[in-house]
């Protein structure tokens, strides 16, 4: 699954650490999400979507193989 997390974070000029603080997760989690190594749980995906004022499907792009 791809996502636009890095792009949205850059638009707010936040560091990974700052985004991690906003979402109450570790910086490692943000890095793993941005690099596509980890897909978030549904509650975290909702928190991310709400933080950036969008919908989950606007941020997380599911590719059907």
């Amino acid at each position: 699954m791809n996502n636009r997390l890095r792009e949205l974070r850059d638009a707010k000029s936040w560091s990974q650490g700052e985004l991690a603080e906003h979402l109450d997760v570790s910086r490692q989690t943000i890095n793993a999400l941005e690099t596509g190594k980890y897909d978030p749980s549904l509650p975290l995906a909702f928190r991310i979507a709400r933080l950036f004022g969008g919908r989950i499907e606007d941020i997380f792009l599911y590719e059907d193989h």
């Binding site: 109450d24 997760v25 570790s26 490692q28 989690t29 793993a32 980890y38 978030p40 749980s41 975290l44």
Partner: peptide, 8 residues
Amino acid sequence: DCDELERR
């Protein structure tokens, strides 16, 4: 206490 990736 830890986040979901740490827990995983």
